[in-house]
Design a protein around this nucleic acid. Sequence first.
DNA 1: TCATGGTAACTTACCCAAAGGTCATATCAG
DNA 2: CTGATATGACCTTTGGGTAAGTTACCATGA
Lengths: 204, 204
Amino acid sequence: MVRPNAGTKGVPRLDRETQILDIASEQFGTHGFAATSVATVADKAGISKPLIYNYFGSKEGLYEACLDRGGALLADEIERIARGEAVGIERGMATLAGMFTLLEPQPYLWRLFFDPTAPSTGAIADSINGYAERIGKLADEGVTELMRLAGNDDPLDISAMTAVWLGIVDSLMNWWMEHPEESAEQMMQRCMRLLTALFGGDSE
Amino acid sequence: MVRPNAGTKGVPRLDRETQILDIASEQFGTHGFAATSVATVADKAGISKPLIYNYFGSKEGLYEACLDRGGALLADEIERIARGEAVGIERGMATLAGMFTLLEPQPYLWRLFFDPTAPSTGAIADSINGYAERIGKLADEGVTELMRLAGNDDPLDISAMTAVWLGIVDSLMNWWMEHPEESAEQMMQRCMRLLTALFGGDSE
DNA sequence: TCATGGTAACTTACCCAAAGGTCATATCAG
DNA sequence: CTGATATGACCTTTGGGTAAGTTACCATGA
């Protein structure tokens, strides 16, 4: 039997894995875990499905690999900003600026960690929770500080405010994905204008 | 052949449809369109799958029926508030209060219209867009007014701010779903406190 | 009063396509 | 010849959708 291309491409495993992860991250991030099929990822990479299973074991394994690569990136950046000296709203804006810069080439990465169609139990959930908690914890920290400055330390208030903050970031990322022509710099200036509109011009 | 229960329940169609819609709305709203199976809905209703197909035609038909019932409710309420005299932040808070009251028994209804796993083309998308636009248009209107008061009329700024506003409502609804013990009244007071924390205490 | 027949409510058992996952095998460099 | 890269063909499960039949009830007419 003739199999014209089997084994002939000779792409080193690491290169291939990187390529697959790039494509898979984009698919998962744009369409969600449930709506992404392994066959589609294979197609876009120009390879066959079994190769992906050979390298990543399962669809969940593939997703996990995407999470590990993207999560480290995100969490490291947010942690770096958290170590800065900004507090309150300023810290929020600094975090946003960092996110925009980091995610300029791939805003969909953010959605990997807030995908409602991802499995909510098992190894994947653990991995997601690991990063989401790492991100969420820093958000919580920032929000707690902001609320303390305002004299509010009700745990439920803080919890709700954190959810709102993450929701804001989420909707900005979604909006950005629908306006890909915007640069990170433009997004940041836009956010500053929105803030100004809300606070009436003296947000420093 | 013996079929012990066929046709014996004698529940009138309208009653049965209402019951099915209740269950389906909850499932769709909680788990999303993609992750909800018709068989599960049938199970929870204590009936068989074909009865649902008999009454609603297809999974999409069922979803559409949920949308029609819930959408009218939501859009009417938001429109009612829009006719009020509140503007700017106040209008936002009034809308929130209305949403909380309306959705007290079923916060998941909100998510029906912002479900990323729902089909993005076809009859369903039209129905979704109809209501989402009706809701979104009012949001846009309110935001436009708010921004105008602040001297900003950039269309993209307004578009982004609207997205953020809807994202805020969305995250509050999600938070509420995770804290079902909260009453609408409590949610509203919580939101007022969050607003106060942000604005430093003089937000009417 | 009681057969008759129409209709609404309801079910079992099945079909089929999509998608996750596997197996045996092919190519080729060293 | 071995091991890394790679594939076509297949298996299996899940879930949307359907065909065909069953039960209960009610209206009608003798």
